[in-house]
Amino acid sequence: EGESLESWLNKATHPTNRQEDWEYIIGFCDQINKELEGPQIAVRLLVHKIHSQEWEALQALTVLEACMKNCGRRFHNEIARYRFLNELIKVVSPKYMGDSVSEKVKNKIIEMLYSWTVAFPNEAKIADAYQTLKRQGLVMS
């Protein structure tokens, strides 16, 4: 009890915790819901992991998906900001990190972005970010 967001996320994305990661993922989501600034802190931590090497990045994206389902409107508000969406664009776009990132990570980000444009049709910033990638020919529909 009383684990910090950072320690929950480190456990959830640690390669040696592959079997019991789900327990840590839910622990991370629960901790977000307990803290006043949970979503803001969590999103910054997730960005750092998404910019790490492949396994941690993929696992962080799985954690992000769980947060979108379990952490409600407060969390959605943080995702629907360019401050966060730009970090995803940096990973996918060859103008930034795209050339040194695995296809698996980039494709998962694109799929997630697309799913958010469907789930949150009135969140214009999410649609803008997706269109930016589409204009650059980075979306294989």
């Binding site: 006043l36 664009i89 803008d128 970010a129």
Partner: peptide, 14 residues
């Protein structure tokens, strides 16, 4: 409940 809502944001990366 006290809902600290910070609306500041960046510009979209092109």
């Amino acid at each position: 409940n006290y809902d600290f809502h910070d609306d500041s944001d960046e510009d979209l990366l092109e």
